[in-house]
């Protein structure tokens, strides 16, 4: 079992629905995005390609963020999900320097979207345990675990699937078990020649991108 994602850049239109859905699902404060879609350009006019690149934690098989963590807060589960045990984290930021994918975020203080006080929704979804510690995409581990406990299928049943994939309006994000050759994610990697970002770094990411 190795949870992973395949992101189809041919489908992605950079709408940021995954960005905002992730933010909502995880109750992230103002200024913190666990995922975002970069608006990239390659080449020079007129030979230029604009490309939308969803960025998030790659849940690497060899996650460079885990061994560097001095407190053991940064961990990897058997199923490949890399996560942070907030109560153990000192917020040193080392994991953010070790991560080549810019996937780690320090939540410094409580910061609300409107100056002053939180909205009722922000109040209700605030996560004090995350203040001062490193945070990151968890593949919506709670959804996945709750879903499995209810015998739902992550990647198939929305309630057991990471919110970005659930929300994506272009069907560009496929979540699944990369150890299962028959999973839609694995098939997509094989059929469309998906590649990870910066494979030369030896991190062996669990997020793949379809570019053509």
């Amino acid at each position: 079992m190795r949870w992973g994602m395949v992101i189809d850049l041919v489908r992605c239109v950079g709408c940021q629905t995954c960005t905002i859905a992730c933010k909502q699902e995880n109750g992230l404060p103002a200024g913190v995005l666990w995922r975002f879609v970069a608006d990239s350009e390659v080449g020079e006019y007129p030979d230029v390609r604009r490309l939308f690149l969803p960025m998030q934690c790659m849940h690497c098989v060899e996650p460079p963020c885990v061994p560097v963590c001095p407190t053991g807060a940064s961990q990897q589960r058997e199923d490949g999900i890399v996560w942070v045990e907030y109560d153990r984290c000192v917020g040193c930021g080392y994991c953010a320097m070790a991560c080549p994918y810019r996937a780690r975020h320090l939540i410094k203080d409580a910061s609300w979207h409107f100056p002053g006080q939180p909205t009722p929704a922000e109040q209700a979804t605030a996560q004090p345990a995350r203040r001062g510690v490193m945070t990151k995409c968890t593949f919506c581990v709670d959804r996945v675990d709750r879903g499995i406990a209810r015998e739902l299928r992550p990647g198939v049943d929305p309630e057991a699937t990471p919110m970005c994939a659930v929300a994506c309006i272009a069907g560009a994000i496929i979540f699944g078990d990369l150890d299962d050759a028959e999973s839609p994610a694995c098939k997509l990697i094989k059929e469309r020649g998906a590649v990870p970002l910066m494979p030369e770094l030896g991190t062996n990411p669990s997020v793949y991108y379809v570019t053509e």
């Binding site: 709408c15 909502q24 409107f114 002053g116 909205t119 929704a121 929300a167």
Partner: peptide
């Protein structure tokens, strides 16, 4: 599915 702006509805409701 709904797009990015639907996710702004909560903030739209509670906008101070």
């Amino acid at each position: 599915k709904v797009c990015v702006r639907a996710y702004g509805l909560i903030q739209k409701l509670y906008n101070p």
